[in-house]
Amino acid sequence: MPITPADDYLIHQTPYPVDRVATSDRNFYDRYFFNGYAPGGDVYFGVAMGQYPNLGVTDAAFSVAFEGRQRVVRASQRLGADRLATAVGPIRVEVVRPLRELLVRVEPNAYGIEAELRFTARAIPVEEPHFFRLAGNVPVMDYTRMTQHGTWSGWLRVDGREWRLEGAPWWGSRDHSWGIRPVGGRDPRGAPPQEPPQFFWNWAPVNFPDLCVLATVSELADGTRWHESGVILRPFPAEEAVEAEVATQLRFRSGTRWLQSAVVTLTPKGGGEPLAIEFEPLTTFLMKGLGYGEPTWGHGIWVGEAAVDGTEYEVAKEQPLQNLHVQQLSRVRAGGQEGLGVFEILAVGPHAPSGFRELLDPAP
């Protein structure tokens, strides 16, 4: 294995150069995710970039939603030896100050989307509890994720129409996750599963003027939780995070598995008043625009040596039951404050607390 610039840092976790990971599992990945939204909630953008060392692929996507449309530019290419090379096609991510400031650029391309966006952290990062899930006796999830709230500055342009991220704050959040999670194409592992597919997942990072909040739960078909994280933070200069228990009340839009409304209550584990957060969805963002579940441009799928592509979705014409994985930009209210945040949901298969009994039955 070649020596690369990353090997000059005191970061090694194995006896090998950094470009070789400790596991041979094909599904090992390392990924950035970002989102951001206009103060009025009328513009939303998302960014994803991943490396898949055991597949030899790296990919990225940038997608912006406004006026009922969702525009996408995406790129994929062969992963080189240098793990610090975080540029795929026209999309680039630069760590300016670790855990404080990152830069996202989208260079001019044939799909009309350009950007230069600077993420500045509002609060300390949150390390969520480790994710681990088995399918039978085979680990299918074994990864760590860090989530952080922030403010965006810079500019964003679609077909010459420009938004300057200034004045009232453009808030957002980011995560960085790494480990084993299903990526790429189908991964046959011998005997077929005995149970039908089931996955119920919520992730809700929220920004208020004086508060940052994260709530996330993953549940089995009967509602039993196999993962949960609730955190209440104050913006800098505060350096503490209050861990909380999470309770959710979800109402689904009829005929879909998308939210109509939600109340998420965080109760501090050390004692204190519960914080009840009301969610009013404003915009639905299709996560397939960032490669999540997209059949051709899914994460880690080989598309070509240097492939760049773009598309547009008219969200009102998309079938909700064919787009189960969404982020819903929401107006949020809690404790006399009003803010913005996202409620991400992926609900596949039965989930008794929500009234779902089959693979894809919708809310009544």
Rank of each mutant, 00 (worst) to 15 (best):
Q148Y: 04
R122A: 13
F132A: 14
V96M: 06
R331I: 03
R234V: 00
R234N: 09
Y37R: 03
T147Y: 09
Y143D: 07
R74L: 10
N207K: 01
G136E: 05
L165K: 05
Y32Q: 12
T147D: 12
L214C: 00
V231R: 13
R26G: 04
D159F: 12
W152Y: 11
D8C: 05
D142P: 08
D309M: 07
F131E: 12
G56C: 09
T14S: 11
M146E: 10
E67M: 03
G167K: 07
G185S: 05
N35L: 05
E128N: 11
N54C: 04
L360A: 01
L266S: 06
G291I: 09
Y29Q: 08
P39M: 09
R145W: 06
R225T: 13
P209A: 00
L282C: 01
R225V: 01
Y29L: 10
T216E: 14
Y111I: 06
A215M: 10
Q328A: 02
G160Y: 10
V206A: 10
E294F: 10
G230K: 06
L266V: 12
P193T: 06
E114D: 08
T120Y: 02
V140D: 03
L360Q: 02
A110G: 15
P192I: 07
D142M: 10
E239C: 11
G190L: 03
N35C: 09
Y111S: 02
H227Q: 14
L102Y: 14
A215W: 09
S24D: 14
R333D: 06
E314H: 11
A85I: 01
V263W: 06
S254N: 03
Q322I: 00
P320L: 04
Y44T: 13
I124N: 00
R122P: 04
R26K: 15
E162Y: 14
D82M: 01
P39G: 02
F208L: 07
L259M: 00
A121I: 09
V47F: 15
L340V: 04
A247C: 07
I345Y: 03
G185L: 08
P362F: 11
Y143A: 08
W155G: 07
F131N: 12
A75K: 01
T267H: 07
L286I: 05
Q13H: 13
I91W: 05
P139R: 00
W203H: 15
Q319Y: 04
P353M: 08
F199G: 01
R257M: 02
E94A: 13
A363E: 07
A75S: 09
P192A: 07
E228Y: 00
E127Y: 13
A65W: 05
P364S: 09
G270V: 10
D210Q: 14
N323R: 12
I113V: 15
V348I: 15
P15L: 10
G172N: 01
F356S: 04
T296N: 01
H130S: 11
A115Q: 07
L329I: 09
T23I: 10
E344M: 04
P353F: 02
A6Q: 03
N323M: 12
A316F: 12
H299T: 03
T284N: 11
W152F: 06
V57L: 05
V138A: 06
A168V: 07
